[in-house]
Structures are given as C-alpha cells and as structure tokens.
C-alpha cells in the first residue's frame, strides 16, 4: 500500500517529537488518532516503518486501547460513562434517551454528517458528579436531558464554524 506523502510527513514530525524507538509508539499513535479521528491502515503501516515495529504489533497496540480506533469516527467522540455510580443515577436513562434521540444513532455509531460518534465507557473518575461523559477531552458532569441537548448544540455550532473557516 502506498502511503500518501502528507501522512508520511505527519508521522515523521511526530517521531521527531516523541523519539524513534518503541517507547514512542503510543504517543505517535495518539497524535495520529487525534488528528484523523482514527488510525488508518496507511497510518499504521507508516508508523511501523518509521519506528521499526512489526506491523502486527502496531495493529495489536492500536486495537488494545479503547481511545484508539481503527475505524473512522466523528469529529467529536462522546463517551458516556456506564459504570455503576453513573448508571444508577436518576438522570442516567433520560440522558441516554436524549443522546440517542438527538443524534439518531445507537452506541458505537457515527452520525451521518460525521460530527459525532457515540460510545460508552467505563468509569472516568467523575462518579461524584454523575452522570458524566467526555466529549473528546472535555468533561461534562451532572448531566440531565436538557443539559445534554445544550451541550450537543454547542458542539454542532463549533463544527459548523470550523467548516466555514476551512472553506473561507
């Protein structure tokens, strides 16, 4: 498989920051996963070459950790905690319903416009402020069905604004 040159330079750039050895594998994958929303086959091959790590091992690492994905995902990945302190909170089920209704997708799926991927996650260390979720790296706590709608609206606006900047 041919690796596009922009991808090659992106990987080289990451390697120059994190180092050219095995310990750099996670940070390099993390960088790619962030900028592309997932790790493509081309990206993994390129990392394998640059770091001299067998491709099966790059794939093994890419599929071990829940924050890495080998499938394309939305611009914003929503991770709703489903561990007990969140799941037994009175507003948890209304929040789940609001997310599914607003986004029109089930857990594990991405919206047709490519803006959101909806996922569930294990405890994210915000149990005292349940129910809680992450949207990319940001935390949202004490969720209600109203607050979830408002939060999604804000990310939608951000996504739309980002599009404009790009086309301008």
């Amino acid at each position: 498989m041919d690796v596009p040159s922009h991808l090659q330079s992106e990987v080289k750039q990451l390697v120059s920051v994190h180092g050219r050895d095995r310990t750099a594998l996670l940070p390099v994958l993390r960088g790619l996963n962030k900028s592309h929303s997932y790790l493509s086959e081309a990206a993994m091959l390129c990392v394998s070459k640059e770091l001299g790590v067998p491709r099966a091992e790059v794939y093994g690492v890419a599929t071990f950790y829940s924050f890495f994905s080998v499938e394309p995902r939305g611009k914003y990945v929503i991770r709703l905690c489903r561990t007990i302190s969140c799941a037994m909170n009175g507003t948890y089920h209304p929040v789940v319903a609001a997310l599914i209704e607003e986004l029109g997708v089930a857990f594990g799926e991405t919206t047709a416009d490519g803006v959101f991927t909806l996922e569930q996650t294990a405890c994210i260390g915000l149990c005292d402020q349940a129910p809680a979720m992450l949207v990319n790296d940001d935390v949202h706590v004490k969720l209600t069905k109203e607050s979830v709608r408002a939060i999604l609206g804000e990310y939608r606006r951000k996504a739309a604004a980002g599009e404009k900047v790009k086309s301008a």
């Binding site: 561990t83 007990i84 302190s85 294990a122 405890c123 260390g125 915000l126 149990c127 005292d128």
Partner: peptide, 8 residues
C-alpha cells in the same frame, strides 16, 4: 491511571 470504579 486511577481507573478503579468509584475512585476519583
């Protein structure tokens, strides 16, 4: 890594 459910 604080990942034990209920620990924050």
């Amino acid at each position: 890594d604080e990942g034990e459910p209920g620990t924050f």
